[in-house]
Amino acid sequence: MSELLDFWWEWLPSLLNGLAVSVAVTAVSLALGIPLGLILALAVQSKKTAPRTIALVAVEIGRGAPALILLQFTYFGLPNAGLALSSFASASLALAWCTGAYTSEIIRAGLEAVPHGQKEAASAIGLSGWDALRYVILPQGLRVSIPPLFGFSILMLQASSLCFAIALPELVSQAYIIGSNTFRYMSILLLAGLLYAVICIPATMAVSALERRLGQHAH
């Protein structure tokens, strides 16, 4: 047992470096993807055909294709079309697309949860469509979306593990390299799994608690 702990202690710094990259790419993807999700959520409801169709296609592909394929498409495929990005940039782009697609559904559901009377009252007092959205609908709708968005963010951190396949030096990549050098795959993967668990388990419990609290204050 103590031998295992020594092993872990020796390789923990490398894994933590990897974890830092995982967290960084997740953060960038969310920062790009969630605003994209809001735009897509509004665009799919547009009355104009062009934005609606583009948004629908973006969402269907972002949600329908495996994240791994999106990653490989961006990293290996885009260079064919003349756009060669680093693995971090490719990962951010692909995961942002994925995030935007999934969160557009989450946000859309949140906006629909706003009582219809709110939209009517906003219209009746003469607020323009944009003002109604900005001052009345979005503040209420986004509030409903917060717990599922947090939950999704946790899933995104896990999805960052797929960036192994596009040579991003994140946590799983580091673990794999250490494993292939020391042949102690089990031990190092155990530690890697532990690192994910230590973040995701409390985070998941926090989201459940948040859901309960927000549910209590519902009107």
């Binding site: 593990s161 192994f164 794999y176 795959y185 993967l189």
Partner: peptide, 11 residues
């Protein structure tokens, strides 16, 4: 549910 599938598969 808190550990990515790829880690389980590698493990």
């Amino acid at each position: 549910r808190s550990i990515p599938p790829i880690v389980w598969l590698f493990f």
